[in-house]
Design a protein around this nucleic acid. Structure first.
Length: 481
RNA sequence: GGCCCGUUCGUCUAGUGGCCUAGGACACCGCCCUCUCAAGGCGGAGAUCAGCGGUUCGAAUCCGCUACGGGCUACCA
């Protein structure tokens, strides 16, 4: 049997890392099994519907490289892939259930249900539908329907118990009495998740339902529904929750950071995919660094974890650095490009190798490469080493200037600069730091001599002169450093 | 409250009865390298495998109970 699985988000907000992890696992599993990964949009909640989120969800998936085989913008044999466009299917299923007695119309108003819930709470009773409309006389029902009374359709949960078989967790047994007569079709005619997902998973020949753990408690309702409709249930896999640092479920309703914000924070999609894959799954080999193709190759859905995983930003940072370093130099330059828009193309290409291994996030690019765009604008904090004074610093800069004046800047100048240090009885590191700040304005830069080479002799001499001038000017009274 | 799921270093995890005096990775600390910052190399600290009781010659691994944590409990998904 060919594997077909799906990621089925509701367009009610931005994709967050927890959702992305679910999508990833579906993608990995489908690809590993040479099956089909489907994107289906569960837009059955008109109240919470958010117009922008569909685009955001698709953009997020594509950013990660998780292109779907069937779904919005791609089509497929089971179109449409929007539940709001499949209403007749759900209605037909609901009609069948009503006809067989497995479901019934309920005329209770939201107000009554609200009051019911409150009173149950007061009495410390478990909340749930009390079954008032469960056994209404068919004639009465027909009459109210004819009169235009609004109704929902509820499933008639039978007695006994229902077993849910999960590929990684094994079998869980649920007493049906704890299940509640779930609403299947709302009074606006839209199905609830429970009906819609069961109908679609069947209609779309989904073989594996891989979804978050929060669905496990409602899985028995779904199993019941498959049985009532005479369908074979798919294989279930409930993924462990992704937790925030506070150990609570990561959720868009609890202020989780949207996936695409990580892109804006300078993370590579490769790193995010790698990191997400390791939340709740492990290749078992000890390898942490993996690309999407490698993940596909190694993925084994039976090895997914059963216990929740905490989202650890530090590990994401580490993997991001690893993936940045693993990029081919030209590719790395291309990724950095948007972060330093003013930097000339040749300079970026030449400077990229210098900064590639010292970045954790792309956001660091401007700080590391800014000196190539503009000369220090006066900020020269720390140009005078702790153990030396301003006058000596000026002398050292002048002496060093002579070295730069004698040859094109580059690593070849190191011996000459060491001589400068010796002559003034400075440490070589002190000379370099003073020059670093003179040339870049920053105490943290790529290797200085290589950086100077990018600047060019004329620019280097000019910046040294400017620094000397600034130090001399400061001698007039103001603080130099 | 009820139902369900879970519990190995701070975090992600390896581990499916003897190879475990529990391995790796991140983070942390130290050393090396070194013109800064990184990267890299080497080393260290860090888990009585939630607790208790069973099963067994032998348990992180099997069973039970307890505790704790989380999820669900909508005409949301």
């Amino acid at each position: 049997m060919k594997v077909r699985d799906r990621y089925a988000p509701s367009p009610t907000g931005a994709l967050h890392p927890g959702n992305a992890r679910s999508a990833l696992f579906n993608y990995l599993f489908a690809h590993r099994e040479e099956g089909t990964f489907i994107l289906r949009i569960e837009d059955t909640d008109r109240r919470r519907h958010d117009d922008g989120s569909l685009a955001t969800i698709m953009e997020g998936l594509r950013w990660l490289g998780l292109e779907w085989d069937e779904g919005p913008e791609r089509g497929g044999p089971h179109e449409p892939y929007f539940q709001s466009e499949r209403l007749p299917l759900y209605q037909a299923a609901a009609d069948r259930l009503v006809a067989t007695g497995d479901a019934y119309r309920c005329f209770c108003t939201p107000e009554r249900l609200e009051e019911l819930r409150r009173s149950q709470e007061r009495a410390h009773m478990p909340p749930g539908y009390d079954g008032r409309c469960r056994d209404l006389d068919p004639a009465v029902v027909a009459g109210r329907v004819a009169a235009g009374d609004r109704a929902v359709i509820r499933m008639r949960v039978p007695g006994g118990s229902t077993a849910v078989v999960d590929l990684v967790r094994g079998t869980s047994e649920f007493a049906n009495a704890t299940l509640d007569d779930q609403v299947l079709v709302k009074s606006d005619g839209y199905p609830t998740y429970h009906l819609a997902s069961v109908v679609d998973d069947h209609e779309m020949d989904i073989t594996h339902v891989v979804r978050g753990d929060e669905w496990l408690p409602s899985a028995p309702k779904h199993v019941l529904l498959y049985g009532m409709l005479g369908w074979e249930p798919p294989v279930f896999v409930h993924l462990p929750l992704v937790l925030g640092p506070d150990r609570a479920k990561l959720s868009k309703r609890h202020g989780a950071v949207a996936l695409l914000e990580y892109r804006d924070l300078g993370y590579l999609p490769e790193a995010m995919v790698n990191f997400l894959a390791l939340l709740g799954w492990s290749p078992g080999t000890g390898d942490d660094f993996m690309t999407l193709p490698q993940l596909v190759q190694a993925f084994d859905i039976e090895k997914v974890q059963v216990s929740p995983a905490v989202f650890d930003a530090a590990k994401l940072d580490h993997l991001n650095g690893q993936h940045i370093r693993a990029l081919p130099p030209e590719e790395f330059a291309a990724r950095v490009r948007p972060w330093v828009p003013e930097l000339r193309e040749e300079l970026l290409a030449a400077a990229a190798p210098l900064v590639q291994e010292r970045m954790t996030r792309l956001t660091e690019a401007p700080g590391l490469l800014g000196f190539l765009v503009a000369a220090p604008d006066g900020g020269r904090d720390g140009i005078v080493p702790k153990k030396h004074d301003r006058a000596a610093t000026i002398e050292v800069l002048r002496d060093a200037r002579a070295v730069f004046a004698g040859a094109d800047p580059g690593p070849g100048l190191e011996p000459g600069l060491r001589d400068v240090a010796t002559r003034h009885d400075w440490k070589f590191g002190e000379v370099m730091m003073t020059l670093r700040i003179a040339l870049t304005g920053s105490p943290v830069t790529p290797p200085l001599l290589e950086s100077a080479a990018l600047l060019g002799q004329e620019e280097v001499l000019g910046r040294i002169d400017a620094s000397v001038a600034a130090l001399e000017g400061a001698a007039g009274g103001k603080e130099a450093s």
